[in-house]
Design a protein around this nucleic acid. Structure first.
Length: 481
RNA sequence: GCUGAGGUGGCAGAAUGGUUAAUGCGUCGGACUGCAGAUCCGAUUCCUGGGGGUUCGAUUCCCUCCCUCAGCUCCA
């Protein structure tokens, strides 16, 4: 198992990661509440933790990665009510889209997506524990957590209870002992989904599902808990308070990882501000790799400012440069077959390729600095470009060695991988090839009017045409690229 | 107001108590091309918010001020 450093929000320090039960690593990430279509900010965390899981597995850890789904909450009920849809069915519908987007983004590291409503017995049991131990109280059919009973409440986010801004969005519901108390079990309102409980019919509060799930899956303590930076307070505070009070064990998690939020022109992207850019559309318009690249091109803890019409366009430009060399290298490797004899690499080049891979692991092991690994991949690409003309003469083993860094990127970053290269649709590429042949014949007889007409029509149809000395390449163009 | 994270070149964004502060985008010049694009080569050597301090040396550590973003019970 490779050793690595990880920043922990709770202790506010970067320290060596040590699993509770090596080589196992429990990774829990707060997933989403699928009450509407996902926007471009929502996938930043999942991509980040996908890389975390991929890297840990490469480094010899056995990761169990879990992302919960809050498939019932106030917003889902509200949205469902507007359209006369069952809130949980509405959640499922959005999740279908979400899973599709996750698959397109190459996120395959998540082992399990537990849904809140599948854990009602665990939730009820945990609430009962909290009541029994005196951390929670019932009022008017609801159960609240009494934050006064848990002195460490606020430690993660640095909030002081008595400093909570007076008149802020604290909701002094009748029955609450303190405005800061949060609901564990919400008494049923007619027409809403509900379950029987010792306190009457109701449904879970927002925070309780996570700890009910993690205690069930991981036990009272686990290794890494991730989520967006906006979840620190109160959500993650509540989780600590719930789990540690219920199980009597501490700390709930060893490392809290918080992902910097995506802002839109300096402001947080959110529905209420009306400044959202859709996730699915972004993937459609550009590509899953470009979206991934965009996120990973910054440190996961930094906030990232999204500028429509520029951010993904820039990422597309940068990624293409990186990818085109990877594609050509992989093509040469495919052409070489399983065991072609040929020129071997110079000792310097060979050791450079090997040490580049080692350096990639090393860079990533400092709090998952994906940006640094991308910078190194660019440098490696640069040394590769002068080799490009000689590729066809190299042996299979030489090509495999050269592909090391790209294979690393495919395995860990989910970029530049063998499977990620766009193969293209067979029919489409056949038709395009046909048009390009016609253009080539026109060019051969110096009929540039006809040649340019064909090219212009292809461009108008979204196909970019590039002559490269002897051959002509094409690719589907993104918008305004 | 309180808590946290930051302020780096035209832009995006890393890093480190010490040779030219990574990388990318963009821009400029050259090569290639019928042209364009892509690609390649080169340049963009005068960039670390202000002010103090510690140090032989700070962008990095400390203090202070200013500014930005996020959180302060919807939030990835």
């Amino acid at each position: 198992m490779r050793r690595f450093e990880l920043y922990d929000t709770l202790s506010r320090e970067t320290r060596m990661f040590v699993p509770i039960t090596p080589p196992k690593v429990g990774l829990f990430v707060c997933g989403l509440t699928p009450y509407s279509d996902a926007h471009i900010g929502h996938a930043k965390g999942p991509v980040t933790f996908d890389v975390v899981a991929r890297a840990l597995r490469r480094w010899g850890y056995r990761v169990f990665s879990v992302q919960n789904v809050t498939n019932l909450d106030d917003r889902l009920i509200a949205r469902g009510g507007e359209s006369g849809t069952d809130p949980m069915a509405l959640a499922d519908r959005h999740m279908a889209v979400w899973y599709g987007d996750m698959a397109r983004l190459g996120i395959r590291s998540v082992n399990y997506y537990p849904h809140a409503t599948d854990y009602i017995p665990e939730i009820l049991a945990q609430i009962q524990q909290l009541v029994d131990r005196g951390f929670a109280y019932e009022a008017r059919g609801s159960v609240y957590y009494d934050i006064a009973k848990f002195p460490r409440y606020g430690a993660l986010s640095g909030q002081k209870l008595d400093a909570l801004r007076p008149g802020a969005r604290v909701d002094p519901e009748p029955g609450k002992r303190s405005p800061g108390d949060f609901v564990l079990w919400k008494a049923a309102t007619p027409g809403e989904p509900n379950w029987e409980s010792p306190w009457g019919p109701g449904r879970p509060g927002w925070h309780i599902e996570d700890t009910a799930i993690t205690v069930r899956l991981f036990g009272p303590r686990y290794d890494i808990h991730g989520g967006g930076a906006d979840l620190k307070f109160p959500h993650h505070e509540a989780e600590i308070a719930q789990a540690e009070a219920a199980t009597g064990e501490s700390p709930l998690v060893n490392f809290w990882m918080h992902v910097g939020l995506l802002t839109l022109k300096g402001e947080k992207m959110s529905k209420s501000l009306g400044n959202v850019v859709g996730l699915s559309e972004s993937i459609d318009t550009f590509s899953p790799q470009v979206v991934r690249f965009y996120y990973l091109n910054a440190h996961y803890r930094s906030p990232l400012d999204f500028v429509p019409g520029r951010s993904l366009e820039e990422a597309a430009e940068a990624y293409r440069a990186l990818d085109s060399v990877a594609v050509r290298l992989r093509a040469a490797r495919t052409a070489a077959g399983p065991d072609r004899e040929g020129e071997e690499l110079s000792p310097e080049l060979e050791s450079s390729a090997v040490s580049t891979v080692e350096e990639l692991d090393e860079l990533l092991s400092h709090d998952f600095n994906t940006r640094e690994t991308i910078a190194l991949l660019f440098r490696w690409t640069k040394t590769l470009t002068e080799l490009l003309p000689k590729l066809d003469g190299l042996s299979t083993t030489a090509l495999d060695t050269l592909l090391g860094p790209h294979d690393w990127a495919g395995e860990v970053l989910g970029l530049l991988g063998a499977s990620e290269s766009s193969a293209g649709d067979g029919t489409l590429s056949g038709v395009i090839r046909l048009a390009l042949d016609a253009r080539a014949r026109a060019r051969a007889r110096s009929d540039f009017t006809e040649a340019d007409r064909i090219r212009d029509e292809l461009i108008a149809a979204g196909v970019r045409v590039e002559d490269d000395g002897s051959s002509t390449r094409w690719r589907l163009a993104g918008p305004s690229v």
